[in-house]
């Protein structure tokens, strides 16, 4: 997968984290994270629980600031522009950087179709061809065939794996340049996991993807590059190793990375 590392596409964005430090209240949980997410690349974030992967990924679309007491230092550059700059609107950032959560969270009061179109309704965007948008979004999330006959059923009538793919479709309908995924498969069965992984591979043509995963095989299957996060002895977490997925898994520089990817701890 290394050869695709530098491919370019118009729609996807280049994302970069520079010197990111994060606090919850007085407690610092991330220390000096520097990562580059080139366009159309899939980046896996791995590391033991509690090392700050979710926290980091939430800083990439300014969801972190929704938590009272959130503190931050550093820069997140989206196509070269710092999203934390004064005067930048968090809502604009989130329009370009979509997010899929660990637990499927379809809107319970809406039907499947309404869920896909929820982003448009919520942001007041107009799209002349709703039906087409619903179909393409659901197709891209590889769930179209399963739901095409029941688009008006409540979203909660779907299985957990289908709900998660619906949430992906919901994000895709907004046509984000970057898609963040925080352990999207941790609540799913193997079959659904497989489908989501296929979806990710296809999506990489059109957008930049950052995915947090606990599953080493998954990281190797879907990602081009991998960052290994670690927080030791209650110190703030940080990135121990960052490189192409092949390099991180097969020739890790840091012995701790070696231990982790070979299942010795975490």
């Amino acid at each position: 997968m290394v050869e695709t590392l530098l491919t370019e596409s118009n729609a996807a964005s280049h994302l970069e984290a520079r010197g990111v430090h994060v606090w919850f209240g007085q407690r610092q949980v991330l220390q000096d994270v520097n990562l580059v997410f080139p366009s159309n690349q899939v980046t896996a974030l791995i590391g033991p629980s509690g090392c700050g992967k979710s926290t980091f990924i939430r800083t990439l679309n300014r969801m972190h600031e929704l938590i009272p007491g959130a503190g931050f230092a550093g820069q997140i550059l989206l196509d070269g522009k710092d999203i934390y700059e004064d005067g930048t609107d968090a809502v604009d950032v989130r329009l370009r950087v979509g997010m899929v959560f660990q637990k499927p969270n379809p809107f319970p009061t809406m039907s499947i179709r309404e869920n896909v179109l929820a982003g448009l309704r919520l942001t007041g965007k107009k799209n002349p061809n709703m039906d087409e948008l619903v179909e393409t979004s659901l197709r891209r999330a590889s769930i179209w065939n399963e739901v095409k006959d029941r688009l008006n059923d409540p979203a909660l009538s779907l299985s957990g794996g289908q709900q998660q793919r619906l949430c992906i479709a919901r994000s895709l309908a907004m046509d984000p340049a970057v898609l963040l995924m925080d352990e999207p498969c941790s609540a799913l069965d193997p079959g659904s996991t497989r489908r989501v992984e296929e979806t990710i591979e296809e999506l990489a043509d059109q957008m930049t993807i950052v995915i947090v995963t606990h599953n080493m095989q998954q990281a190797q299957r879907v990602s081009h590059q991998t960052a290994f996060f670690l927080s030791e002895d209650g110190n703030p977490g940080g990135v121990v190793e960052f490189g192409t997925t092949e390099q991180v898994f097969n020739q890790p520089v840091d012995p701790r990375t070696n231990d982790y990817v070979n299942g010795h701890f975490g």
């Binding site: 010197g19 430090h21 606090w23 610092q28 220390q31 000096d32 972190h64 600031e65 007491g69 959130a70 503190g71 931050f72 230092a73 550093g74 934390y84």
Partner: peptide, 8 residues
């Protein structure tokens, strides 16, 4: 460590 910004 750079100065912390309180986010709201």
């Amino acid at each position: 460590i750079p100065a912390k910004r309180q986010l709201v």
